[in-house]
Design a protein around this nucleic acid. Structure first.
Length: 872
RNA sequence: GGGCGCAUAGCUCAGCGGUAGAGCGCUGCUCUUACAAAGCAGAUGUCGGCGGUUCGAAUCCGUCUGUGCCCACCA
């Protein structure tokens, strides 16, 4: 949009007949930012409203999932800003440890190098370079969407302040003995070469093979079944159920392990299910979490037979083989030794995969850092249980509780280079010192820092307060913590929401947010999952280019039923674009006809019924939209606005007002002011969802600075039920006669002489409008009524002089008549039912009575219409 | 193996105890002095199956079928 939109509304600005978002959006966004609309003031007296954005990965490009959540957050904050809150929506990015490291390693691989060729320092330097070069992309895309983020407060999980926060909480947790180091079986990715936490493992059903193997010699043999033959090299026991008669004689004895010269004990452990397989289990404590637990209970050795890449290290013929090669090689060797008693049989079982690279996870005994979660998780659960934090939709709370009530300790160390290095130092004599952010690391010979970095979710767990300056007591922290709403996908409740709850409650002794609004996933128009890895994925930028940001936003908002997945297709974005264009043209028309927002709104006594009707509906819509916003019902509020604006304001009010405008005079002046008011309020209501088109039109209409900082509409309380009923009557008459015209094959524009008898009805005042909408001309001298339509107590007589298809009309009316008679019979049946009258609430009975009356009136009306038809 | 959810118009979804709704699509007529990215009119559903509760059920209960998601130490 150019300079001409900035002039006052009285000069009827020239706007093109089509809305072209591309001309408007970029400059408007820049203007908003320059004027500081999105910059929060911690010293403000206004009540605070804060949202922190779920930080996208630095590696990320904007996809529809982001666009969706960002649209909702933007709508929430824009409305609150208009409502007079000191609104902060804080942007930032996540360093996304493993994801980013993988990305840069890929880039290195293309140059034929690995991270080890560079060394730790040079490698992380390279990642920072990468981040500076590509990392800002997604933030630019958020601007394109119109996201009203406070760029002066942009944060990054690896920036200095946030790193300080990480070190501080690590030290605090360590001192409180909530962080510890322990050797356990962890999930290990042999490709990423790092430990990953339980929730970073994706389980999927894989085809495997179950092999039955005979262990032992002579009378003392036992058959075990396994899908992981290669781990037999590390077996240190066979376990059976303590009460299993079949194996009672073996318990406590040692049997020979095939392919080795070792013997292993048979132990009794209740973990073994005697019903499963042979009821005997091989035990490999170093390579299976269950076996590790059994080993702990029975004091078994742990024998590691594989290295970090999944290559066999046990000396012998299999040494140096990859785990899967080893599997077939060992099966072959066992078969040769006559140890395979039942051949491999296909077996589908659940196998863990690295959520980053899909490599099969290898359980591995390893020394790692852990967060002890019991008290933290308890606090996180309690905060939701006693309703300090609300989850929307509420049924998500069950999932949340199931998780926090059954949480295992969290493995936080990662064998990566990109991330927050663990602030722990080891001395030459095995001393361990945890160093806080302001402390010097121990100096002297032999002190080394822990090589590992922290799980990326460790730092994002601090996001709601680290971004506000914690551990410093900053004005931002005082003003904006706890934040108000967290908008995020239900798929990261466990990764992120729970961690923020635990850390927020621990560090701040206060919840991190009051409400969690959980969203679903964005899907394509057939309900198929759409993600960046799927071929049906759409780049939202393409749609924004083609249809405008408002169209993409409105489509997403309109699909946002609480917690549910959002389907989106190009046709729907097009429809939203059409809506934006409709708003554009309706407002443009209104301005061309002098709609104004200047001067006081006339008193109801000065207003026509049409004006009172639309103002009544307007205020009801304000109330409804407010209630829906407070309940995060974006789909419903968008739909409500769509229908109010398009159907009621644009299709009926504007059309009904045309006669008044064109007639001129004081009535026209009043109506122009009302239309200005209605558009002013409607544009303000629409602004949080479709910011660009509303800003362009509102500033032009009102001549004021910006709708971004305009007041949010308040329900004045004005309602006029009588006017609403009156307009419903007008709509009925108009629709009825239009249908008649359409049925008769009259062209929409064809003028028809008519005599209207509206006396004694509320319609009398609307004759001019009705005539105009129905293209009815005054009846002349030679008027001859060929059709007479009694509707709503009035009569509309038309002179169609032979244009009528009498038979078609008779058919239609006969059909309507039988429908009305059926309705009457149904209502009578109900009202004659004693049980119904006795038990149904009064208002339902009244409704049925009303229905009966309507049906009877319809019968009279239609009968009259039938009688009025000329005979052929 | 446990838990949660969903099955409503061709498609995507609202409705969740009182005569079946929306958007898109579809049919017909129109460039009727803001908009054809539009206007007007219209058609379309035994609300997954079977039982039950109720005066009344798409809506509550049971059950079956189909489908999706989450959790779990399925050797």
């Amino acid at each position: 949009m150019t300079e001409n939109t900035q002039q006052s509304n009285h000069s009827a600005p020239e706007l093109p007949t089509q809305y072209t978002p591309a001309d408007v959006e970029g400059p408007l966004y820049e203007r908003w930012v320059e004027r500081g609309y999105f910059t929060a003031d911690a010293k403000s007296e206004k009540p605070p409203y804060a949202i922190v954005i779920p930080p996208p990965n630095v590696t990320g490009a904007l996809h529809l999932g982001h666009a969706f959540q960002v649209t909702l957050m933007d709508a929430l904050t824009r409305r609150k800003r208009m409502q007079g809150f000191e609104t902060l929506w804080l942007p930032g990015m996540d360093h996304a440890g493993i994801a980013t490291q993988n990305k840069v390693e890929q880039q290195l691989a293309e140059e034929g190098k690995s991270r080890y060729d560079l060394g730790r320092e040079a490698f992380t330097e390279r990642v920072w370079q990468w981040k500076d070069e590509y990392g800002g992309r997604i933030l630019g895309q958020l601007r394109r969407l119109g996201a009203g983020l406070d760029w002066s407060r942009e944060r990054f999980t690896m920036d200095e302040g946030l790193s300080r926060a990480v070190q501080t909480i690590f030290k605090n947790l360590y001192d409180d003995e909530l962080i510890y180091r322990a050797e356990r079986i962890i999930n290990w990715c042999p490709r990423c070469l790092t430990a990953i936490s339980d929730i970073e493992v994706d389980y999927q059903d894989d085809d495997g093979e179950l092999v039955s193997l005979k262990y032992g010699e002579g009378d003392e043999t036992v058959v075990v079944a396994t899908t992981r033959v290669e781990t037999m090299l590390g077996d240190t026991a066979v376990a059976v159920h303590p009460e299993d008669e079949r194996y009672a004689h073996l318990i406590g004895k040692r049997i020979k392990l095939p392919l080795t010269n070792r013997t292993i004990p048979v132990v009794a452990d209740a973990h073994v299910d005697p019903e499963f397989g042979t009821g005997a289990v091989k035990v490999t404590p170093a390579h299976d979490p269950n076996d590790f637990a059994i080993g702990q209970r029975h004091g078994l050795d742990t024998l590691t037979v594989m290295d970090e890449r999944g290559v066999i290290t046990a000396s012998g013929p299999f040494q140096g083989l990859d785990r899967f090669e080893a599997r077939s090689a060992i099966v072959a060797a066992l078969r040769e030794a006559g140890r395979v008693v039942a051949e491999k049989r296909p077996y589908v079982h659940s196998v863990g995969h690295c959520s980053r690279c899909k490599t099969t996870v290898e359980p591995r005994l390893s020394l790692q850092w852990w967060v002890k979660v019991d008290t933290l998780a308890k606090a996180a659960g309690d905060a939701v249980r006693d309703e300090r934090v609300a989850l929307h939709p509420k049924d998500m709370e069950k999932r949340y509780f199931d998780w926090v009530d059954n949480l295992n300790d969290w493995c936080i160390s990662r064998q990566l280079w990109w991330g927050h290095r663990i602030p722990v130092w080891y001395g030459p004599g095995g001393e361990v010192v945890c160093v806080g952010p302001d402390e010097e690391p121990p100096s002297g010979e032999g002190w080394t820092q822990d090589e590992d970095v922290l799980d990326t979710w460790f730092s994002s767990g601090l996001w709601p307060f680290s971004t506000l300056g914690w551990p410093e007591r900053t004005p931002d922290l005082a003003k904006f913590y706890p934040t108000d709403v967290l908008v995020t996908g239900h798929d990261i409740i466990f990764f992120w929401v729970v961690r923020m709850m635990m850390f927020g409650l621990y560090s701040m002794d206060e919840i991190p947010f009051k409400t969690v609004a959980l969203t679903g996933l964005v899907r394509d128009e057939f309900g198929k999952k759409m993600s960046k890895s799927n071929p049906n994925a759409v780049d939202p930028l393409d749609w924004m280019d083609a249809y405008g940001s408002d169209a993409v936003r409105f489509t997403l908002a309109r699909g946002a039923n609480p917690g549910a997945d959002v389907p989106i297709g190009e046709d729907w974005v097009q429809a939203s674009r059409n809506f934006a264009n409709k708003i554009w043209n309706a407002t443009r028309f209104a301005m061309m006809n002098g709609a104004t927002t200047e001067g006081p709104l006339p008193e109801p006594s000065e207003l026509s019924a049409t004006d009172r009707w639309i103002l009544s509906r307007l205020n009801a819509t304000v109330a409804e939209v407010n209630a829906l916003y407070d309940d995060f019902q974006f789909a419903k509020l968008s739909d409500t606005l769509y229908h109010f604006a398009w159907d009621e304001v644009f299709d009926w009010y504007v059309e009904l007002s045309k006669t008044t405008f064109f007639a001129g005079g004081p009535a026209a002046e009043v109506s122009r002011r009302v239309l200005g008011e209605v558009l002013d309020v409607t544009l303000r209501l629409l602004h949080p969802v479709v910011p660009f088109v509303t800003e362009t039109l509102w500033t032009t209409l009102t001549g004021r600075e910006s709708v971004v900082v305009a007041d949010w509409p308040a329900d004045s309380g004005f309602r006029d039920a009588a006017a609403e009923q009156e307009i419903v009557l007008v709509q009925q008459v108009v629709t009825e006669v239009r249908r008649f015209r359409s049925d008769q094959g009259l062209q929409p524009g064809q003028k028809v002489p008519a005599r209207l008898d509206l006396s004694g009805t509320a319609l009398a005042a609307h004759e001019a409008a009705v005539r105009s909408l129905l293209r009815l001309q005054p009846a002349g001298e030679d008027f001859s009524a060929t059709a007479s339509l009694p509707v709503a107590g009035a009569t509309v007589a038309l002179d169609l002089s032979g244009a009528i298809d009498v038979e078609a009309e008779r058919k239609r009316l006969t059909k309507d008549l039988s429908a009305a008679e059926k309705e009457k019979a149904q209502a009578l049946g109900k009202l004659g039912n004693e049980a119904f009258l006795a038990k149904a609430p009064e208002k339902v009975v009244d409704k049925i009575r009303g229905r009966l009356e309507t049906a009877e009136a319809d019968i009279v009306r239609i009968s009259a219409q039938l009688a009025a038809l000329p005979t052929a």
